[in-house]
């Protein structure tokens, strides 16, 4: 069923934050529609965690304004805290408390009972229920992550704020984690999630690419990469590293970088794939292949970060 959502669950207007000489955030603006999933895509040090600290009312911005669940982050900071669930980038539960104790502790902070809200976390928490008395510090990485998510959700917040929930997590567990988020979104939860994995971007409704404290670009993942493939080619040969160096030296090549099994070539004017193949063959490269590539978020990030 299609839902038409207009209300802004999160609204950030020209927010800036400076720590000493470091400009952590510079004139950042974006909004997140209620019930949608918004991704902040960028590397460590991009300013993502600072933004989370501002939205969770832990620090105040130097400039700009923001609302979360319609509440002002400065004036209404106390009220906001009941409306949000926050999973910081570092494991921040009590390692000496058990699974059960952590969950009940967080529920009691918000004056709710675990029983009343358990249905929300049941889909991913049932595995953990087998170890109610294990200390949180003794859980595996994947289990810790599930417990942290459970504790962030147990008071049934309207908005879930996740800061790099999948850093250091293997590909299979990462994909399971995003499946859990999809279930929560289907239940109407608004989710703001940050990641340094570009492949996770396509699972968001909208994303902002962020680097050096600034938003580089923002839209749906599909719209952002539309047109990226216009001058993008795959290139491969038997010896990939020499091929990379050779292509970079050619005046028709704007940029060339590794991209998994192939190289991606950003073509400049006069780029002719057949002619380049012939030239590479003459230079001694074997098994040369050059063919059009579809651009993705990572290509866009490289383009934007490279120009900035």
């Amino acid at each position: 069923m299609e839902r038409y959502i207009y209300e802004k669950a999160i609204d950030v207007q020209s927010v800036s934050k400076q720590y000493g000489k470091i400009q952590a955030l510079e004139d950042v603006s974006f909004s997140v529609a209620e019930g949608s999933m918004f991704g902040l895509i960028g590397p460590d040090g991009a300013g993502k965690s600072t933004l989370y600290r501002i939205l969770t009312t832990i620090v105040a911005p130097d400039g700009g304004r923001a609302t979360v669940a319609g509440l002002d982050i400065v004036k209404d900071y106390r009220k906001i805290r009941a409306e949000i669930g926050y999973m910081p980038d570092r494991f921040s539960l009590y390692p000496d408390l058990t699974v059960n104790e952590n969950l009940h502790f967080f529920a009691s902070l918000f004056g709710v009972s675990v029983k009343d809200n358990y249905d929300l976390i049941a889909p991913f928490f049932d595995q953990l229920v087998k170890f109610p008395n294990r200390r949180a510090g003794a859980l595996s990485g994947g289990m810790k992550q599930k417990l942290a998510l459970g504790c962030a959700l147990i008071h049934r917040p309207k908005i879930l704020l996740l800061d790099e929930p999948t850093t250091g997590v293997d590909a299979v567990s990462r994909s399971e984690f995003w499946d859990m988020l999809a279930v929560l979104k289907d239940k109407g939860m608004t989710i703001l999630v940050s990641t340094s994995y570009m492949d996770e971007a396509k699972r968001c409704d909208r994303i902002a690419l962020i680097n050096g404290g600034r938003i580089l670009d923002m839209d749906t993942p599909e719209r952002l990469v539309a047109g990226m493939g216009d001058n993008l080619y795959n290139a491969s040969a038997r010896d990939m590293y020499p091929l990379l160096l050779a292509l970079r030296d050619m005046h028709e090549v704007q940029d060339c970088y590794t991209f998994g099994a192939t190289l991606h070539v950003v073509a400049g004017a006069d780029f002719n794939p057949e002619e380049i193949s012939v030239r590479l063959n003459r230079m001694g490269f074997d098994d040369v292949e050059i063919y059009p590539a579809k651009g993705d978020i990572e290509d866009l990030f490289i383009k934007l970060a490279g120009n900035g």
Partner: peptide
């Protein structure tokens, strides 16, 4: 390269 941007990673 954990947590590093795509340009630096490359």
């Amino acid at each position: 390269t954990g947590g590093v941007d795509p340009v630096t990673r490359r």
